[in-house]
């Protein structure tokens, strides 16, 4: 199925590094099958199939805990920003008094 696409288009698709030639071919097959059926193309099912191939349970553990860590870091930065903000505006209030 991949041969139906222009080679420059395929190169562009592969450039992201998140998809392989075999997967492009598989997506083409799934797309064609959907387009020829009464139900139509099920984009969500195609996305799920590819992501299922790309991520194992170990990946999900990594993504889960790294996202949680990043979230804590982001909120940590907000915490620092809030403390500084309170200090600055608190000092201003004292001066006003």
């Amino acid at each position: 199925m991949i041969e139906k696409l222009d080679s420059s288009v395929v190169d562009q698709l592969l450039a992201s590094g998140e998809i392989s030639e075999a997967q492009i071919d598989m997506i083409g097959e799934m797309y064609a099958a959907g387009a020829n059926s009464a139900e139509g193309v099920d984009t969500a099912a195609i996305v799920s199939t590819v992501l299922d191939q790309n991520f194992s349970t170990a990946d999900s553990v990594g993504i889960g805990f790294s996202s949680w860590g990043l979230l804590a870091c982001a909120l940590g930065i907000l915490f620092v920003a809030l403390v500084i903000l309170n200090k600055v505006t608190g000092r201003k209030k004292d001066k006003d008094k």
């Binding site: 199925m1 139906k4 696409l5 288009v9 698709l13 992201s16 998140e18 998809i19 997967q23 492009i24 997506i27 083409g28 797309y31 064609a32 387009a35 193309v41 984009t43 195609i46 996305v47 590819v50 992501l51 790309n54």
Partner: peptide, 14 residues
């Protein structure tokens, strides 16, 4: 990025 790369392929085939 992974979802978008799949939808890009779908768009290319469409």
């Amino acid at each position: 990025p992974h979802v978008e790369s799949v939808t890009n392929v779908i768009n290319a085939f469409s």
